[in-house]
Design a protein around this nucleic acid. Structure first.
Lengths: 213, 213
DNA sequence: CGCGGATCTTGACAAGTGTCAAGATTTCTT
DNA sequence: AAGAAATCTTGACACTTGTCAAGATCCGCG
């Protein structure tokens, strides 16, 4: 959620004429994401998306070819900021135990703060099982999430002076599974779903390391 | 996909007059499941469902109150047979290693043979994150799947003469995660997705047991 | 047979959908 | 400031959707 001013003003061009287009796409995406997070992929109509924004419903086709392109753009745009969520954890952790704590806390935090975005992601990924045209984007995002987990795990092993016991796809699959489970529980209003996620991650992480000797 | 004849004919009542109703509901559900597995929850219209069956589109509202009731009935109906998929594994395994092999094989087998049903389940579960009225059914099904995993794990620990190292919700979450990952890979046509699932499960299972001594 | 209830079909309705084109409006350039 | 290009609004289109009601058809029982 960094400010949307471009990287800088290289010379005297305060607003590049062609970048305005990109700016608008992002603005549209940001308000579309709110509606998509509320209603999900199928139920969010272009009119509803436009109503919850400062634009009219027709403008979507000026900036996007069709509904699918808008939605893929939105999720890509969101996930782009998402994959660096644990960079701070990796950078600042001082010991294996510290890293585990920080990682678990961050996982809980993002469920509390961005549950609608996460359910939208799972919605889109499920849709991609039916809709061929979603698969490329979903595959790429999934890969970048796996890489994110891999970085955490690598740093964890480094701090513990050992090696990861599992390849990163497995680790990602596992975390994704219990994360999804916690998200579902949280949305169901099940008390303790978040605290359970925390303890589960804490007790799971050590198992992902190869024995020291 | 077992034959749809009822459990038997207990006495002289070959066809109970009121059971005909249930029979029809099941028949409708079975053909609806085909369409739902093809198109998913959102894209499968009642007309499309009816077209791929021997009925007309109006008959749905004779047997079901609305679309949601039909779909929930369908998924419940399917998953009901699903939760006993590994009962044979549990019953017939002769050693820890044998159980792991059989379990992994069965997981792969069901992806090959029932991928559309599995993606339908994930679709429905994702929808339940948005649609309150789906949550009860989804929660119940999820619980029964967790119980299924718990039975496998308990037997595994028993054969290995030790205890499970993780509570069943965690174990279920993990397996669900890597299963979903494999399903996605398989539907994407990624070669090796199934073989990877097999080896991942085989290498993961021993980590779920508490050390022997 | 013929009646009555269950079962099913047909057709319609109202609401909502993505898409697009024609024109209004704003913004920029010269 | 005038004209041109970019941007946005409005309204319509063709189509699909879930739902339901009226009537046709089937079935078993008197």
């Amino acid at each position: 959620m960094r400010p949307m001013t471009q990287v800088a003003a290289p010379k005297a061009s305060r607003r590049t004429p062609a970048d305005k287009h990109d700016e608008r796409r992002k603005a549209l995406a940001e308000s579309a994401l709110r509606t998509l997070g509320d209603l999900g992929y199928a139920r969010a109509s272009l009119r509803e998306i436009a109503n919850n924004s400062e634009f009219s419903h027709g403008v979507v086709h000026y900036y996007f070819h069709d509904k699918l392109e808008l939605i893929v753009y939105c999720v890509r745009y969101y996930k782009q900021t998402c994959v660096h969520r644990y960079d701070g954890v990796v950078a600042e952790a001082t010991s294996p135990g510290d890293l585990v704590e920080r990682f678990a806390d961050k996982l809980v935090e993002t469920i509390v703060e961005e549950a609608p975005m996460h359910r939208l992601w799972y919605d889109l990924r499920s849709q991609s099982m039916f809709e061929e045209s979603l698969r490329e984007a979903v595959t790429q995002i999934d890969q970048s999430l796996e890489d994110m987990i891999a970085r955490v795990l690598a740093r964890y092993a480094e701090l513990a002076e050992t090696q990861p016991a599992l390849a990163s796809p497995v680790a990602y699959g596992m975390f994704d599974g219990i994360f999804q489970q916690a998200l579902l529980g949280h949305l169901n209003g099940r008390d303790g779903a978040l605290e359970e996620l925390r303890t589960r991650v804490v007790e799971l992480m050590p198992m992902l390391l190869a024995p020291k000797a």
